[in-house]
Design a protein around this nucleic acid. Structure first.
Length: 638
RNA sequence: GCCGAUGUAGCUCAACGGUAGAGCAGUCGAUUCGUAAUCGACAGGUUAGCGGUUCAAUCCCGCUCAUCGGCUCCA
């Protein structure tokens, strides 16, 4: 019998009879590794452990606990779930069921709706399947045979999937376990008995193939881990994440409300939320002025004709609100660019004037679909830290680089990591291919020359130009776009913007649309979750709270309060007739950075005793000293 | 917009086809207290809104609004 030479990860080469299964080879090499191997790479190709090795090759076991192994495990659990669903309910069709970042899902077509009680039934059946320890068996079938097989079984989605495969695909692979059969590329874990810890989480609707024109399927989400300890840890983490949900903290910290009577997607900022927002906006103004931006303010509504000229009417109308004034149609602005264009056009511009950078904390309205609204993250009225930069094509790279630096600086100041994406031309868009290519290249070059790592997001640009998106994550790991840089050759064209060049001729400027924090509302949402409401001193709406020990300390407290207000500290007082411990607890729950205790000792010496949010007490110090301390700790943000 | 779930006091949650209770918060009183909850009393609700079924609806049904989880879409 022929022999094959197998190279193991440690470099060891061993010889086996051809056809030896992957798991046998691994077991003979290292018994311990074999026990937790879920699949393997054979010369870089993913295979099941039951795969028979026919040629000399390099073999890398995939461990259950590795990221890849976990993905395979979860994918296998999704098959087990699909089996449990098929075993438990009639007239269910299976569609697709991949592993995802924190678990897996499977989409089903089923006339009834799955209820939470159904999930329990499904889980119960899954446990039986796991206990039965069915092997996952792979086989390959000619595609027409596979079509016939799934047609017989009434699985029309699987038939559609096979029919849509590229023509050169002649065979497909099928996996089965315990009477369940699925079309699947694999690999899978050896058998269902290897599954230790899983949980079904929720049911949701999902369009077949993610297309809203298609039928709505039912998606069951679940998660699985290699050990039950990890599962418990994950579930606890989910619970922690819920506690830092900005919608919950927004109420608990009295920052803002969304009110049913006011309308969906509309934020009402309470005093503390307004203070927080004001701190952020003040920071914005300072930083923009430092960087050569000019502050401007445009109107909230502009004539519909102007929105037609810009292309918004044709490409963005369904997101816009319109109103009528004296028989004239006006569009409520969904973006701030139009006024900025008009400012540019208000006089003849020279190349010496460029770049011009117009900055506006511009409030816009967008008619977002009801189902997408989400706390502060997705609203219908929001304020952008928006700017439009008009420059020559030669200045483009420097300007984009400066913006990327600004974003990076801002993210460091607020304490965020971020991811970068380059979004290219979408279907519904304006402008020539040539302009799009130039614009996209300008963005790409700026990213590359600054060595910024990025992903490409095909077809996700704005209708007028490509963009660089900067994404932040919320408590539940959902990504939100905050900063964005969009390169636009089209609007300057449509508005016939020009500048006089060195040559005395008219030239067309290029425009960059950009935001740094993005929508202030969304940014605040992410910020609240990022800090779990315990804002750093410079951002905290209330920086210090005065706590009297008894009523006789109130007059002293009033003096201290006055003094601190005068010094520009954001201070509150709690002079209630309550025990100190009670007031400390309250202040602690409000996540106030400094609690200043005022008792006999402080009153006599004219001092305050700060307690930090961390629970640590500082030495008593004079009011002026405390003010200086706060100012010093905020200095680098000013 | 689509699929599903939910909506009871300011908040968190009970209850039942016969018009609702608890804890916290609030108010009042007592207490004057040193680092995460002092005690007592009181008050608080057209059970999201509108309509229907019923002798009777918070509960059953329909519509609307809003929220939540997804999908699609986006800052």
């Amino acid at each position: 019998m022929a022999e094959v030479a197998i190279t193991f990860p440690n470099g060891e080469v061993r010889s086996y009879p051809a056809g030896t299964a992957v798991n046998e080879a691994i077991a003979s090499w290292n018994q311990d590794v074999a026990r937790t191997t879920v699949a393997a790479r054979l010369d870089g190709k993913l295979v099941d452990v039951s795969h028979g090795i026919q040629d000399d090759s390099r073999l890398e076991p995939i461990d259950l606990a590795s990221k890849e192994g976990l993905g395979i495990l979860r994918h296998s659990i999704s098959h087990v779930m699909a089996q449990a669903v098929k075993d438990t309910f009639d007239n269910v069709q299976i569609t697709i069921g991949p592993s995802i970042e924190d678990g897996f899902y499977y989409d089903f077509e089923y006339a009834e709706t799955f209820t939470p009680a159904d999930l329990e039934k499904i889980e119960a059946r899954m446990h039986q399947i796991v206990r039965a320890d069915y092997p996952f068996e792979r086989r390959e079938l000619a595609r027409d045979q596979a079509v016939a097989l799934f047609s017989d079984r009434g699985e029309s989605y699987k038939v559609e999937l096979i029919n849509d495969l590229p023509e050169d695909v002649k065979t497909v692979s099928l996996y089965s376990q315990g009477g369940y059969l699925d079309l699947c590329r694999g690999p899978h874990i050896p058998s269902t008995g290897m599954i230790r810890a899983f949980k079904l989480l929720n049911v949701a609707g999902a369009y077949w193939r993610g297309d809203e024109r298609n039928k709505m399927l039912q998606r069951i989400y679940g998660t699985g881990f290699s050990t039950s300890q990890e599962l418990e840890d994950y579930l606890r983490l989910l619970d922690e994440a819920r506690k830092r949900d900005h919608r919950r903290l927004g109420r608990e910290l009295d920052l803002f409300q969304m009110n049913e009577e006011a309308g969906a997607g509309l934020v009402i900022f309470h005093p503390k939320g307004t203070l927080l927002r004001t701190v952020i906006e003040d920071w914005e103004r300072r930083e923009h002025l430092k960087r050569g931006y000019d502050m401007v303010i445009g109107p909230q509504i502009l004539k519909a004709d102007l929105w037609m000229k810009s292309g918004h009417y044709d490409h963005y109308r369904e997101n816009m609100y319109f109103t009528e004034v004296d028989g004239q149609s006006y569009g409520i602005k969904p973006m701030n660019c139009l006024s900025h264009m008009l400012i540019y056009k208000s006089k003849i511009r020279s190349y010496r004037d460029l770049p011009l950078r117009y900055f506006e904390l511009g409030t816009v309205h967008r008619h977002e679909k009801a189902g997408v609204l989400h706390g502060l993250m997705r609203v219908r009225q929001f304020t952008q830290d928006d700017a439009h930069i008009l420059c020559t094509p030669e200045q483009l790279n420097d300007e984009i680089t400066a913006i990327a630096d600004f974003v990076d600086y801002a993210m460091k100041i607020f304490g965020f990591e971020y991811e970068v994406e380059l979004s290219t031309r979408p279907e519904n868009s304006i402008g020539s291919d040539e302009d799009w290519n130039m614009a996209t290249e300008a963005l790409r070059q700026a990213l590359e020359s600054n060595r910024i790592a990025y992903d490409i997001n095909e077809g996700d640009g704005a209708f007028y130009g490509p963009k660089i998106d900067f994404k932040l994550k919320d408590a539940l790991k959902r990504k939100w776009q905050c900063a964005t840089i969009q390169c636009d050759f089209t609007l300057p064209e449509r508005f016939d913007l020009s500048y006089i060049g060195k040559d005395g001729e008219k030239h067309r400027p290029v425009m960059l649309h950009r935001v740094i924090l993005g929508a202030i509302e969304r940014f605040m949402g992410v910020l609240i979750e990022h800090y779990a409401g315990a804002f750093p001193l410079w951002l905290s709406p209330v920086q210090a709270v005065l706590l009297t020990v008894t009523d006789r300390h109130i007059p002293y407290g009033e003096g201290v309060y006055r003094q601190m207000l005068d010094s520009g500290i954001r201070v509150e007082h709690d002079f209630r007739n309550e025990k100190l411990g009670y007031k400390i607890r309250d202040a602690q729950l409000q996540k106030i950075p400094y609690m200043l205790v005022l008792g006999d000792r402080e009153m006599e010496s004219g001092r305050v005793t700060p307690r930090q949010r961390s629970g640590k007490n500082l030495e008593s110090l004079g009011v002026a000293e405390f003010v200086a301390l706060v100012k010093e700790q905020c200095a680098r943000y000013q």
